[in-house]
Write a protein that binds this DNA or RNA. Sequence first.
DNA 1: CGTATCGCTATAGAAAACAAAGCGCTCCGC
DNA 2: GCGGAGCGCTTTGTTTTCTATAGCGATACG
Lengths: 125, 125
Amino acid sequence: MAEPIHNTCGSPSLVLGIGLLQEKWAMLIVWRLMSGPCGFNELSRKGGGLNVTTLSQRLAMLEEAGLLTKTIHSTMPPRTSYELTPAGQALRPVLEGIESWSEKHLPVEKACPLMRELGHEQPTD
Amino acid sequence: MAEPIHNTCGSPSLVLGIGLLQEKWAMLIVWRLMSGPCGFNELSRKGGGLNVTTLSQRLAMLEEAGLLTKTIHSTMPPRTSYELTPAGQALRPVLEGIESWSEKHLPVEKACPLMRELGHEQPTD
DNA sequence: CGTATCGCTATAGAAAACAAAGCGCTCCGC
DNA sequence: GCGGAGCGCTTTGTTTTCTATAGCGATACG
């Protein structure tokens, strides 16, 4: 039987956290929500290239993990808003850490190809 | 700060960093390397479920991004070791941040399904 | 010589993310 | 009242990504 990852080095928690956050778009969605609650389409529009299918899937996952809450404000004109829980908010220093790390160690030249990976079209218009 | 991603919240660097780190296994590989240099198969074995194809791919990517270096010690009995650069090392606080965040906010019960995602088979017996 | 290890690539298949369209519904201009 | 646009998603394929397995050259052990 495969030797579990958590007795390799360090705690299982890290592995868990990584497993959650390495899901595509997860961190970005959380980061978007940092500035306040957001609706589905708004999130989609500002998501920088992620499509609705993945978004709803990711949103469901993050909700289940307890990072955000989904609130339906009105049933008929469907108004929803996604908002970070304290657990989600607690991720801010981590993301800020990534941000400052990126600025220091990730030169833009190298990063350019990555932009495409993120479905990031450079708005040269 | 609520505009499209390419000029949304703060710097594009964050997006870049996330784009890099959200690649499957990337953070975990970096974390493995935190405790010291490692060979390919050793890394694979301790990777907790990632397969060699993805590993070599990810390794190449991380090397190109400047997070680690590949050193070939002997040509013929192929001995290689992957080692973090300062840029890679600088990621430690971020990963530790994720670790402590996970411990606080990611209960093991919820995490269990995630283990599978990480290729982590539990001894369900 | 047979088997095992190391570092990796190549080939196929499974899973995930993708784009595009569509649904029920409501608001807005006309 | 009707067309169009918006909302929050789901459904339908297609592409991209990840995975499993096998294999190469070479050395080292018995």
